[in-house]
């Protein structure tokens, strides 16, 4: 079997990311991601950094790499096609940039416990995979770990991920920006993992309604709030874009969960208190119509909190 790069301990599956240190004909090395063949067969498409892949001549690569390209050509070696999996060869390390945290378009593996070969355990999520290393999001920091330092269990997980046996999730999926006229824009978000779990659950209309009514009933001014409508829609799909991956590998049709929105009319005497408890979901003072409150619920009966919408984009 063809070795796919330095530190690659599991190239024998024949599925690789193509992202690693490549040896060049002039003796130098370059960190690149091979994304496929160009129209002109003498060239391949290679990604460097966050730029879109560009063409590079195969003759510029070292002799030992030529065998790798031949293996790709013959189909012995295949590129990973797991939707949403980031394989950027230059994924940034360190504290996750603020804009990225807010970006609903970034995809990760599931939260799991990783173990290095010395037995140290840490909880994190895969944010980027290359043939040399795995970038793990631990808290809000990204660490790049060489694959050879990971445990057998971790490698088995990565193999499953590469083969399509495991999936990736949007870090956060939100319902988009909402605001009452004259009020502050807000959004409601859930993690990609919760999104996928809810999508499997299906509709739960009556139970979600019961949850909302109990939730309101438990508040001091609950009897001054009157249900006006309770609406079921499907949650918007997670974005089809991927900030750190110019390849469109995000799932095209993600199964979508049901989302419930309850609207309550607020009696005048409870208006101020409602605004204190739900500052974003209650109509602002300047609102012309009857004072109203919106409560969001997921199909599993969890009440979802509204967050101030982040309007800063990268």
């Amino acid at each position: 079997m063809v070795a796919a790069g330095e530190g690659t301990s599991h190239a024998d599956t024949g599925i690789v990311t193509g992202a690693r240190v490549w040896r060049m004909a002039d003796g130098t090395t370059k960190r690149l991601r091979f994304t496929g063949f160009a129209k002109n067969e003498q060239y391949g498409m290679f990604q460097s950094g966050n730029a879109a892949p560009g063409g590079k001549a195969f003759k510029d690569f070292a002799t030992e790499e030529q065998a790798v390209f031949a293996a790709f050509k013959s189909g012995k070696l295949k590129l990973v096609s797991t939707p949403g999996l980031c394989m950027n060869p230059d994924f940034p390390i360190g504290k996750l940039p603020g804009w990225m945290k807010e970006d609903p378009h970034f995809w990760t593996g599931e939260t799991r416990t990783w173990e290095n070969s010395r037995g140290k355990r840490i909880e994190g999520r895969l944010v980027c995979l290359t043939d040399d290393d795995a970038s793990l999001l631990i808290g809000e920091t990204v660490s790049r770990v060489p694959l050879k330092e990971l445990s057998e269990g971790d490698i088995a997980y990565l193999q499953q991920l590469k083969g399509g046996g495991k999936r990736t999730y949007a870090d956060k999926v939100n319902i988009g920006q909402v605001s009452w006229d004259g009020g502050e824009p807000y959004t409601v978000a859930i993690s990609g993992e919760k999104y996928a779990a809810l999508a499997r659950q299906g509709s739960n209309f009556q139970e979600a309604l019961n949850v909302v009514l109990r939730h309101i009933g438990s508040k001091r001014m609950g009897n001054k709030l009157e249900l006006e409508s309770f609406t079921e829609t499907l949650w918007p799909p997670p974005s089809e874009t991927h900030s750190f991956d110019t390849q469109k590998t995000v799932p095209q049709r993600e199964q979508r969960p049901y989302l419930y929105v309850a609207e309550f009319l607020i009696q005048q005497s409870a208006e101020t208190e409602a605004r204190l408890v739900w500052p974003l979901q209650t109509t602002p003072k300047s609102w012309g119509g009857p004072p109203t409150l919106q409560i969001y619920v997921a199909a599993d009966g969890s009440i979802l909190a509204a967050e101030k919408a982040n309007q800063a984009t990268p």
Partner: peptide
């Protein structure tokens, strides 16, 4: 296609 529907439980507008 359910993804294109909004199902509301609502009442005659009290106003």
């Amino acid at each position: 296609d359910d993804s294109k529907l909004a199902i509301s439980l609502t009442r005659t507008n009290p106003f």
